[in-house]
């Protein structure tokens, strides 16, 4: 084991998965996530995110490849690896007939936590996740957001060093989503490495420091959030003209894309760090008089999608 391994919360090499029906879900994934990172695994539905998490948590058998959690191979050091891993799955997977507190207590027992310690932890995490009042309710009586939070409490009861959440905020309303984000940020500050999958870019943007984008079972981008934002930061400006225009104005810069909308408007798409003055100079030369200009709100999400679609 190299020294670098021990700095990684997780280290995935050449991970492949072909399901029994022949579907190739993962085509050789390599991924490292550093200890203490807050990492996003972003990708459209069916990209293979849940498959990766399934293999990490041993619910899915890999076809090939290795996974190390804090340097411990999941295949050969399964107990150590699992002890430092907490998983919040995409789908509800607790018994509908059990009481909230029992679900968390039982999970503590699976990790070898004794009665008093298990009770202490159960109380601690149910309180943190605002479920303590519901502790004696049967789990099926909980709302969607509460069920999701129950799975987070359950995943934390053995205080893992690495927490993986598979689309934790899917179906959770905005207000609750914010409070969940704050909670995750807090435990990340306290030293828990977090990996979450999502297809909301906004979520990755506001939470994560590093990001990998997966599509069709392959990592297509693996970088810092900031670098990705920079790469994707394009803006579209809509111009209204005083005079009639019959075609889009020309800019002799291949990085600037211009499109005619109608006789009094056109739009220009370019990187946010470009100088707009150069545009006006070029427009002046072509005798195009601008009445007004506005920024078409530039959803990073749209660009993210166009990026994936272009592959």
């Amino acid at each position: 084991m190299s020294h670098a391994d021990s700095q990684n919360a997780i280290s995935i090499r050449n991970l492949r998965k072909t399901y029994a029906n022949g579907h190739v879900a993962l085509k050789g994934i390599d991924l490292d996530v550093k200890e203490n990172d807050f990492f996003a695994l972003l990708g459209p539905n069916g990209a293979g995110k849940s498959t990766i998490i399934g293999i990490i948590s041993t619910l899915v058998n890999a076809s090939d490849g290795t996974i190390k959690i804090f340097g411990k191979d999941v295949a050969s050091h399964v107990y150590e690896a699992k002890q430092s891993l907490g998983v919040v799955p995409q789908e509800i997977n607790f018994s509908q007939f059990e009481k909230v507190a029992d679900i968390v207590m039982t999970q503590a027992g699976y990790y070898g936590l004794k009665g008093s310690l298990a009770r202490e932890r159960t109380e601690k995490y149910l309180k943190k996740l605002d479920l303590w009042d519901k502790r004696d309710n049967r789990s099926r009586m909980l709302s969607g957001g509460m069920k999701r939070r129950l799975m987070i409490a359950r995943a934390l009861v053995h205080e893992p060093r690495l927490l993986i959440l598979d689309e934790p905020t899917a179906g959770v309303d905005i207000e609750l989503r914010r409070s969940m984000w704050e909670f995750l940020q807090e435990i990340n500050r306290n030293g828990t490495t977090i990996i979450l999958t999502t297809h909301y870019l906004e979520e990755a943007e506001s939470l994560c420091r590093n990001i990998a984008i997966i599509d069709h079972g392959q990592i297509v981008e693996n970088t810092s959030m900031r670098a990705l934002l920079g790469k994707l930061a394009m803006q579209t400006l809509v111009f209204d003209t005083v005079n009639d225009i019959s075609t889009a104005p020309q800019f002799n810069d291949p990085e600037v894309k211009c499109q005619w909308i109608d006789s009094h408007s056109f739009e220009v798409t370019m990187s946010t760090d470009r100088d707009i003055n150069a545009l006006f100079t070029a427009l002046n030369q072509q005798n195009v008089l601008i009445k007004s200009m506005r920024n078409k709100t530039n959803r990073l999400e749209e660009l993210f999608l166009s990026r994936l679609n272009s592959r």
Partner: peptide
């Protein structure tokens, strides 16, 4: 059926 078997499977229980 309820998938709660996953609770045990992800844990270190042999």
């Amino acid at each position: 059926f309820q998938r709660c078997v996953e609770e045990i499977l992800v844990s270190p229980v042999p």
